[in-house]
Amino acid sequence: MSSSVNTALENAQTEVSTPEPPKNQPVRKAKRASGVVGLLLQNRKAAVGAFIVVFYVLVAVLGPYLVPYDPTQIVGRRHTPPSWEHWFGTDGSGKDVLSQTVVGARSSLATGFIVGSIVTVVGILIGMTAGYMRGRVDDFLSTLINIVLIIPGLPLLIVLAAFLPAGFWSIIFVLSVTGWAWGSRVLRSQTMSLREKDFVASAVTVGEGKLRIMLREILPNMMSIVVAGFFGAVNYAIGAQAGLEFLGLGNPSNVSWGNNLYWAQNNSAMLVGAWWTLIPSGLSIALVAFGFSMINYAIDEVTNPRLRSQRQTASILKKQPAKVRRSRATPVLMEGNGD
C-alpha cells in the first residue's frame, strides 16, 4: 500500500523526526541534546561551516610556522601583484601579503574566541541571575542590560578604544564590555520561562539549592541557545575587531586582518589598483563569518524539529507529481493514485 512512501523514505534517510508531535514541547529535548552532535555531522550546512572554521583554526595555529616570510619584514618591492615568489603579492610597504593573512588569522580568531567566551560566561551569569532571582535583583540587572543595549554600540566602541592604550587586550576588553548584553537578555527571558516549569518546582521541593538548580536543571535545557550565542559572539568580535583596527584604533604594529586592511587603505591600495592587498584579509573575515553563521543555522535546524521534518518531507514530495507538490492540503500518495 505504502511502498511508495517507504522507498521515498529510504532515499531520504537523512534525519530523525518525531512521529506525532507531542503536546508538550520539552519532551524530545534530551534526545536532541545527546544526539545533537550526530545530527550536526549529517547536516550539510554544519559540515560546510565546520570545514571553513576548522580550516581557519588550523591556519591560525600552524600557519605562523609555515609561512614563507616574516609578515613584519619588508621582503620585496612595493605593491607587486601575485607571483610565484609572493603568491598573494606584496603590500604598500613591500611585505608579503600571504604571510600577513596567515599570521593575521591568529589574532583575529583569538580575539573572536576569547571575546566569545567572556561574553557567553558573563551573559549566562547576569542573564540567569536576573531571570531566576527576579524582583529587585532582576530590576537592577535588567536596567543594566537595557542601558548597555541602548547605548549605540559603534560610537561606544570607538570612544572606549580611543581612550585605552592601543593593543590586543584593550580591544578584547572593549568588545566584551559592549557585547554581553544581548546574550544576557535572551538567556534572562529563557531562564524566566524555564524556571516556571514543573521540573524546577520539583527540584525546589526535594531541596535543591538555587545555584545547582540554575546550573544543573535550567542551563542544560538552553545549551543550544548558549552555543548559538557563543558562535554569534565570536562572529561579532572578529568583525568588530577588524572594524576598530581598520579605523586605526588598534595597535597598527600587530598583524591581524583588520590591521592588514588598515594598512592597505593607508597605502591607497584601491587607488593604485592593488586589489590583492585587500581581498585575502577581507575574504577571510567574510568566510569565517559565513562559516559560523552556517553552524548556527544548522544548530537551529537540528534543534528545531519542525524545520527538520519540513525538509525531510519536502525531499519526499519532490519525487511526486506536480499536482501533489503544489497542494496546500494533506498530501495523498497512493499507488496508481485512486485505488
Binding site: P26, A30, D198, F199, A201, S202, G207, E208, P220, N221
Partner: peptide
C-alpha cells in the same frame, strides 16, 4: 517531609537528566 507530585508528567521531569538522576538527587540531598 512534605513532597509534591505535579500535574504535567511531561513538564515535571528535566529532559536533560536520566530517570536515575532524578531519584538519586533527593537521596543525596537528604
Amino acid at each position: 517531609d512534605i513532597q509534591m507530585v505535579f500535574q504535567d508528567p511531561f513538564g515535571s521531569l528535566n529532559p536533560a537528566h536520566t530517570i536515575g538522576y532524578h531519584i538519586e538527587r533527593p537521596l543525596l540531598i537528604h
